[in-house]
Design a protein around this nucleic acid. Sequence first.
DNA 1: GATCGATAGATGCAAACGCATATACATCGG
DNA 2: CCGATGTATATGCGTTTGCATCTATCGATC
Lengths: 153, 153
Amino acid sequence: MSAKTSESPVRLAAETWESLFRAQVAVMRRLQAGPAFRTLALNEYDVLFTLSRCPSGWLRQNELNDHVLLSQSSLSRLVERLEKRGLVERMPAPDDGRGVLVRLTEAGRDLQKQIGREHVRDIATLVGPALTPAEQQELLRLTEKLRASVTAR
Amino acid sequence: MSAKTSESPVRLAAETWESLFRAQVAVMRRLQAGPAFRTLALNEYDVLFTLSRCPSGWLRQNELNDHVLLSQSSLSRLVERLEKRGLVERMPAPDDGRGVLVRLTEAGRDLQKQIGREHVRDIATLVGPALTPAEQQELLRLTEKLRASVTAR
DNA sequence: GATCGATAGATGCAAACGCATATACATCGG
DNA sequence: CCGATGTATATGCGTTTGCATCTATCGATC
């Protein structure tokens, strides 16, 4: 424990966030350089990924919006683009006349799987050598705890 | 240690990154909602912040580019906008006729400090209650180790 | 010191973005 | 039921973004 990071709780929190953010930038830079993002932008892949993890298949557009770092209007148009490319389909929500449900098409699911595999390989070569498995487990636990706490409020 | 996350090294690395990324999105969402980003977009603040941390004051534009998640052309124009707003100034690099040096103006330094203070408060209220000080220290250590490893190659 | 590949930064252009707002539907109090 | 208030999505519009490309300079080789 260095003197620097124990000066004050506020300072520690700020430095922790700063470090987390920089790590994210560094990893993301490398990932974006790979060929996986040639055909699909990060946010577009992220939407396909989120949909692929959804048990029922269908997801409300506003729920999608919680996972992605995009404004509501941008997500609306992003989904529109994905629909035009035949990667997702939309239907009106049966229980809410305002809502729209989104799900992957067969082509969308295939593309997500294909890019996902590449993506996972890239991540493994970046993160694997950086941290021991025990450290990765701990990092996973801490970031999950942070995310849960932040989204709770 | 759950069975799920110990299936394979590749899977563990992918899940760790996924969790880190989601935490970053969740925190960033909250930060962007605050009034601190009303006057300055995230990337613009990030540039001012990076410049404020630079010992000599002057920083090469291409070095700036390593810290920010932006293409070279976008950063070029971003700095141009900051210059027009009187927040930074540019000068040709004395030792390299191709290069450009950037530094904060007085107004830029003031604005960075002002937004930085707000920013730090927001972070403290998000991260502080989420993790114990010891956990924050550990998260700081792990993300710094990850960043160092990734940027090394 | 001329040539050639590599690097730093700027710029044209189309695509994507966020903000403000419009529209349609839900929900609640009377 | 009806109006008021709130929520889900779409759209107009100005701004920002990335890609491709251009110019200028660097550094190495001969």
